[in-house]
Design a protein around this nucleic acid. Structure first.
Lengths: 404, 404
DNA sequence: ACAAATAAGTCAAGTGAATTGATTTAATAA
DNA sequence: TTATTAAATCAATTCACTTGACTTATTTGT
């Protein structure tokens, strides 16, 4: 028996922590609002103009912000707005999907500089990691050719892959990537690249992408339904991605829903509502590179089987949207995915009219209750890349932490 | 057109903010872990022993912590543990229900000192506020008689009432308290009492109570299903109560669920699963003071109608629990409520066995997936009282805020 | 054209909570 | 009896933010 209990407590903070927090606040404010003057920042953050001035000066020295031409805004001295420097930081995103892996390198403002993909060999993670590390090496080489300074400013590597993590297989499911999920992937990639590596599930990554440069930009409460090979959600709560106790929050594909008309039988939602289900229905090969085009073709062509499926999925998602609104009271819900734009748009249209819910308020904010988000095979990799940037520059991650 | 856009940014922080944060960290650590020595606190918070020493000294001076007898723990100088002083702070909780209002006064550690209720006149809020203010006045008088120092240490008043707030009535519902929800209640109570007043819905208050001294004590990720007159949830995410964009998060009673066997008809969950539904079924008067006893009697007695209802509700809640687990990945789910203990326990039992979900992991944490929480007509008022204490002493509320 | 008003931004000194490093106190272990 | 370990304090230092006075640049009003 050990005398010393393990003590649960949050971290204290100090001057350095406060300072780091304030720097991140500034960067976040510039990201959300575009260019702002020092005076603007002082008003918005509640800090004194002097403090803001010092911080901005330092950020400029670090190459993270840059002044624009001064603008006259009525009386008084003209303001000098500052904007983020796109080349101030870079990050790598890596998506590991069932059959392919994609990598993306973005800069501080989310521009995609490099974009590469590779087929994953069927041998599982042991062989897969070799392919992955090779792909990352190539991407970094391409980056170096394009922006020689960038390598020094790489802040990390984000990995996104299908969840859930650390779970006993619930139902026998060829889509789940059990071997990958039990492999020490992060350590191996960190070793192989020398970068800080973090892992999240694909829906969370898609939500991060929406927040950085999609429909959730600047929103603090948004739910992103990720319609891809599986079905999940990325939860943006209080301006932060919520992961739950074990980083598996948002796995709505695993919700057991009643099968209509079939008594009390239940089935996981993603058995209907997912690209995997659609591929099965249309007899398409999910590893086919031209999959998106094939699906789009099928949608144009139509057909009773497809129409029935869409109606079925839309009806289920309609109730899902209503449930998510009731549970989260968000500003908006975004349907995005690793699925063709045509399909996402069709689904958003078919889900209408939405069911009544608490989101149906008179003083409705500008955002629609449900909107389409990014629909692109690259959006997960993009979101994965956004994660290290968020970690490095997002105030939420640091407010409570000491800076050693 | 106004030139100056409204700028969205988080607040900066300064020395005072860091200091306030650290004070709250200490109090929070003592609340969760019981008595701790300064050295323990230093290790747990990451602050230096010196910093902790100073903070604890100040807290002791403020009458918020008190030293215990020193304890020998092996080699080295014996440690002096510090504990929270129960009389260090007081708060008032107020529950406004359909037919009654209840008030409770608690101290810093959540002991109930005063407990009073009054019937609400049917005339709506205009007359109701008079009753409420009178009830609070009486409660404060009783407190003054019992603890003369307490009045000076009142940190605020929390109000809990059924939500949702600011919504157009969705379905015609005699249980909704529209008149109350559109009344400037907080302002009137703040005026009448001279205290800081905050409003939350009853499920959120129940969750706060669970966190302060119930099954969610010390947990950072827990979902409290509140089974009362209506049905709702209090969401404890990252150790903090989550309210959503408009403080209406958690309204699961409004989720439209399929009516089994009836094609695609949907109905709000709380039309089945709530005390209101049960009262309707058993022809009981919900305003009856002896309601809990009556329900308990009925449960003992049994009967096919009641058994069917319980089975029905349990089956729905079973799926609800599975859905909440999939969505939130919490440490535990707690079924609590403004309902008799007998009913809550019966439901928890009937909901078993739980459906498979991501919470069904091999390395299951000590908490059960589903457990019974507080079941007591006073728990909402208690939670309402806990809110001002949390606001005043919980680190989360202040980490980001300046202290003027 | 000139003063007054307004706003952005800087300078220089002051503040205060935490850190650093040395020291004291009190127990167990050898 | 001495060494070791741990809790807690003392005194000096640090550093990011605040304070208050000041400079600069523009518009407004006469």
């Amino acid at each position: 028996m050990d005398r010393r209990r393990s003590i649960r407590a949050k971290s204290g903070t100090n001057l350095g922590g406060a300072s780091a927090h304030n720097r991140r606040i500034m960067i976040d404010a510039l990201r959300v609002n575009g260019a702002l003057s020092r005076a603007d920042l002082a008003r918005a953050t509640g800090l004194t103009p002097q403090a803001v001035s010092n911080i901005i000066e330092e950020l400029a020295l670090d190459g993270l912000v840059r002044s624009q031409a001064s603008v006259r805004r009525g009386r008084g001295q003209p303001a000098t707005p500052y904007q983020l420097v796109a080349e101030g930081a870079f990050a790598i995103g890596l998506q590991i999907d069932r059959h392919v892996t994609r990598t993306v390198i973005v800069n501080l403002v989310g521009d995609v500089l490099i974009q590469m993909e590779a087929k994953l060999p069927p041998g599982g993670p042991t062989q897969g990691v070799v392919v992955i590390l090779d792909l990352i090496r190539k991407a970094r080489k391409a980056l170096a050719a394009q922006a020689p300074e960038a390598e020094k400013r790489l802040v990390g590597l984000g990995v996104a892959m299908p969840g859930p993590f650390g779970i006993n297989t619930l139902y026998d499911d060829p889509w789940m990537m059990t071997a990958w999920q039990n492999f020490p992937l992060i350590d191996r990639i960190a070793e192989g690249t020398g970068l800080e590596v973090a892992l999240q599930n694909d829906a969370a990554a898609a939500a991060t992408a929406e927040r950085l440069l999609g429909a959730a930009h600047g929103l603090d409460h948004a739910i992103c339904i990720y319609f891809g090979y599986g079905l999940g959600t990325g939860l943006i709560l209080n301006g932060e991605l919520y992961g739950g106790a074990h980083s598996n929050a948002g796995e709505i594909g695993m919700i057991l829903a009643l099968v209509p008309g079939d008594g009390l039988d239940v089935e996981p939602l993603e058995h209907y509502a997912s690209m995997a289900a659609l591929c099965k229905l249309l007899n398409l090969d999910p590893s086919e590179p031209e999959l998106f085009g094939q699906v789009t073709d099928a949608l144009m062509h139509g057909g009773p089987k497809l129409d029935e499926w869409i109606g079925n999925v839309a009806q289920r998602l309609r109730r899902t949207v209503q449930a998510l609104e009731s549970i989260f009271d968000p500003q908006t819900i975004i349907l995005c995915g690793g699925a063709p734009r045509t399909l996402i748009d069709r689904l958003v249209a078919e889900i209408q009219p939405l069911l009544p819910s608490i989101a149906d308020r008179a003083s409705r904010y500008p955002e629609a209750r449900l909107q389409a988000g990014l629909a692109d095979p690259w959006s997960v990799a993009l979101g994965a890349a956004a994660e290290p940037i968020a970690r490095t520059f997002d105030p939420r991650f640091s407010a409570i932490l000491k800076t050693a």
